[in-house]
Amino acid sequence: MNNYDYIIIGAGASGLLLADAMGRDSFFAQKKILILDKNSKKANDRTWCYWEKGKGQFDTIVHKEWDNILFEGTKISKKTKIDPYSYKMIRGIDFYDHYLNRIEGYENITFKQEEVVDLLETSTEVTVMTLNNSYVGTFIFTSLFDYKMTTQQQKYPVLQQHFVGWEIKTDKPVFDASEVTYMDFSIPQKGNTRFMYVLPYSNKTALIEYTLFSEKLLPKEEYEEAIKKYIWDRYKCESYEIIDKEAGSIPMTAYDFREHHTERIRYIGTAGGWAKPSTGYTLMKTANKIPKLIDYIKNGEPLKKLKLKNKFWYYDLLFLDVLHFDNANGYKVFESLFKSLSPQMVFKFLDEKTNLREDIIYINACPKTPFIKAFFKRLF
């Protein structure tokens, strides 16, 4: 039988965390659940990073964590301990292995490697068409994202956080394994907001990413040439081995993704607007939203009611307006923040846990003119 109560499309972070939450909850014990993904999830195709106080739900699969960060600007260089936070990194392959192994233990959940090509919705069910089969589900949760979801509107700017990363191994010790280079804006900006991001695993191995906040992608060669130049300029290292590569693009937009939800289809993860608009960090926001989504499902409430907007959504919107209007000077915002504030304060604000007094302190640390201009453009 190809009929299911719930079908989850996409076995990324949101899909696997949702499936695992369903598997652990007795409410879903008698429900048939299907997960579909075009990939086998056997490749290390990404990394997730986040900061956290103390122990957390992903600690058993954390690949590396750091207690110090470095911020480099054009005018400042700031090395800081971040306790009580730790900066943590998970490899994609470890995440997939862990959660797929857990899901294998749930008799009512099935994972199939198939590519979804279409959804056909009626008032009572949704038919999910794959390249070789069709499945019928009462409710669908899909994490399949397409930039067309956000670009067919003019109300909200749509930027991309796009990057290429190399994991390298050097022939001599050049890295400080205790310290993440969180943002290095000392590199040429070339009309965009550009920075280097370095995650050292040891004094000879690190993941180095060239990252941009802008509207359009670059030719692949431009990312890689920037990484090569940085390795030499920063570490004076000519001899190294490229162990692995990764690339990605995360939408940066305050667009309300709920417009795409229907009565029986709910977008989750990046496709549901779960990535934080101003930073692209998604894993912890996803982990925090899954319990809320589970409650909505169990209570039978319309899924469109799961709102994303709060005061931080408005802050993010203004920040994206600033980047959209003057992308070449985006580095000045971050440099001003890290010059005036501790990274702990920045992390607390980005975690959306600050009170109004702390919000004002954070806002006062930002350059005033671009945000005032963005505010009045948005207002009128």
Rank of each mutant, 00 (worst) to 15 (best):
T142V: 04
T142Q: 00
F145E: 10
D146P: 04
D146R: 09
D146G: 01
Y147S: 09
Q153F: 06
Q153Y: 09
Q153R: 01
K155P: 07
P157Q: 04
V158K: 07
Q160H: 14
Q160L: 15
H162R: 07
F163R: 00
F163W: 08
G165R: 04
W166F: 13
W166P: 07
K169A: 14
T170V: 10
D176F: 03
A177R: 14
V180N: 03
T181N: 04
Y182W: 15
F185L: 09
S186L: 01
I187L: 05
P188F: 06
K190S: 10
G191F: 11
T193G: 00
Y197D: 11
Y197T: 08
L199S: 11
S202R: 04
N203H: 11
N203M: 07
K204Y: 12
T205D: 12
L207S: 02
L207W: 09
L207Q: 04
E209N: 04
E209Y: 01
E209G: 02
Y210W: 05
T211K: 00
T211D: 10
L212H: 11
F213Q: 07
E215F: 09
K216G: 11
L217R: 08
L217Y: 04
L218K: 03
L218S: 03
K220H: 11
E222Q: 13
E222V: 12
E222A: 09
Y223S: 00
Y223V: 00
E224P: 03
E225H: 00
A226E: 08
K229I: 10
Y230P: 10
Y230W: 12
Y230T: 06
W232A: 07
D233A: 08
D233W: 04
D233N: 14
D233C: 02
Y235N: 10
K236V: 06
E238T: 10
S239N: 15
Y240M: 09
E241T: 15
I242R: 08
K245L: 13
K245N: 12
E246I: 08
A247L: 05
I250D: 05
I250F: 05
I250A: 00
P251R: 06
M252G: 05
M252R: 00
T253Y: 08
Y255H: 12
D256L: 06
F257C: 10
E259C: 03
H260W: 15
H260M: 12
H261K: 03
T262V: 06
T262W: 08
E263I: 02
I265C: 01
Y267C: 01
G269T: 05
T270H: 03
T270Y: 01
A271T: 08
A271V: 05
A271L: 02
A271G: 06
G272Q: 05
G273R: 00
G273N: 06
G273C: 07
A275D: 13
A275Y: 07
K276V: 09
K276A: 00
S278T: 13
S278P: 09
S278E: 07
T279M: 09
G280Q: 02
